[in-house]
Design a protein around this nucleic acid. Sequence first.
RNA 1: CGGGGCGUAGCGCAGUUUGGCUAGCGCGCCUGCCUUGGGAGCAGGAGGUCGGAGGUUCAAAUCCUCUCGCCCCGACCA
Length: 571
Amino acid sequence: MKWSRSLIPTLKESPSEAEIDSHKLMIRAGLIRRITAGAYAYLPLGTLVLNKVITIVREEMNRAGAIEVFLPALQPLNLLEESGRLTVFGDDLITFEDRHGKVTALGPTHEEVVTEIVKNEINSYKQLPLTVYQIQTKFRDETRPRFGVLRSKEFIMKDAYSFDGDYEGLNKSYKAMYEAYCRIFDRCGLEYIIVEADSGAMGGEVSHEFMVPSNVGEDVIIRCLTCGYSANRERAEAAPIPPEDHITFQPLKEVSTPDKRTIQEVSDFLQVKPCQMVKTMIYMVNGQPVAVLIRGDHEVNETKLSKVLGQETLALADHNTIEHVTDAPVGFAGPVGLSVKIIADQAVSALHNFVTGANKPDVHLLNVNHGRDFIIDKIVDVRYVAKGDKCPRCNSGIDISQGIEIGHVFKLGTKYSDALKARFLDAGGKERPMIMGCYGIGVNRIIAALIEISRDQDGIIWPLSLAPYHVVIIPVNVNDAKSIHMANHIYDELTLNAGIEVLLDDRDQRPGVKFKDADLIGIPIKIIIGKRFSETKELEIKLRKSGETFLVPPDEVRLRIESLFEMLSKP
RNA sequence: CGGGGCGUAGCGCAGUUUGGCUAGCGCGCCUGCCUUGGGAGCAGGAGGUCGGAGGUUCAAAUCCUCUCGCCCCGACCA
């Protein structure tokens, strides 16, 4: 492709809309343009990269035995109603009313649609197992789209769904997808961490997230650098905190804390560290108030809490309920004298002589001890892992970092096949629900994540596998007939005879402009036809990533490029 | 959805507080000269409903009301 005939609008300055580097670079390098909040147009260079990613994904899905399908973006609401996810998605669902008054959704994901199809078309164990996938645009009305294509209202997802007759089959299907994901991300040149993820309120099932470590990532990665334990924030556990030895119970004491409600306020006022305090949170569970005790410096993990309580729906109680239950305004709740069920986080059970609310206005209690002053009904793990926690497996220090979620694999079990009645007859003639798995990859996110981890002050650094073009030929002076002739010759040689994707910068621009642009758009290899060429007939090959240069006579260029390809293809 | 901010040329911005020349600057773009190894120089030029609607005024980018869009923080997020 000749530069002058494509559309590659590079920018010197960063647009004000962009906050993070990958977003800025995608705009500056002419990959994308925003059309509206959370929706981006892919320009030629962006489209080439997108297609590179899609090709890799498709090849590896096929290799793993998955079958490609193409499902509609439009979805009827009744399917989502049947699975119960209409309320789960809620306002995230983008819907519209057609001329007949029928309300239709733009699909946020496709579990229901694919299950509906399989339910209708598959009746026998002989037709299983089956894994289908598609590459489709998904729609979600994100409350706040941000970071360019990392969180948008419209995004491309590869979603796959496996159907098996038994759990052993699911395990095989899951493993095949898991391994395919590793190959896909390896081929894309991404460094990634696989973390255990929470499987929501279904319980007992397995889920893994593929994360690219990055400080702009919106997901939290908890891991142990010693034993390799890794999990996301919802899922991660910490080693139980051991109770202190030789504690003597101090006498319980009331203390006046006028208008001090938050942990921070009370901590400052009484000069007690938050880790010596206990928060009492009142939750509504099945219409009944429950007190949850958590250490002052910890946070309640509602995913764990709902699992512990066996409830999918729980919520913090409103102010009226709290005042009714505790006999005090919000901010002064405590377990002593409370008549509701008391659930304590493990860390609280290890505390002695702690500070907490007195269930009286403007009063807190000092030296509270469970067993003596109140009884805990249940000790459980219901908090998020915090800095300073220990690994639940090996008790080493734990590392908390951020990452971009680029893939998620999930053993669903029978959630959707039960809801939508997708059953089959087994060898014994017995009707059984299909066992499902689902597997997603954020295609656009792969691109943004790659740029986040592969760039420098000059621009993007593409791996060979994702580069929009492998090579850019730069004739320094396009008015020099010999240079142009050579540029065309090399172009044909590489394109026609070696199947290499080449961009020819035929613009009548000063060399500096062309070099800067080539660096910005991140083409792995530059072939420069300039001063050297007029002097010694040599061409210069320069690598984007390392900056290494090689002087090569024209008839050796192809061989040299091919050997560089081999080198660049290795991780 | 709460809080904050911003909409002026393709991009980045000044001008708005205190209303008043023909609405500016840098980059980019067009023409010519010159130049050709890391975003050159000179000269000339095109490009604006100042987000939109209404109002106040002799006069509005500037003041008032409404409205649309966008960004940031928070809440939310299979």
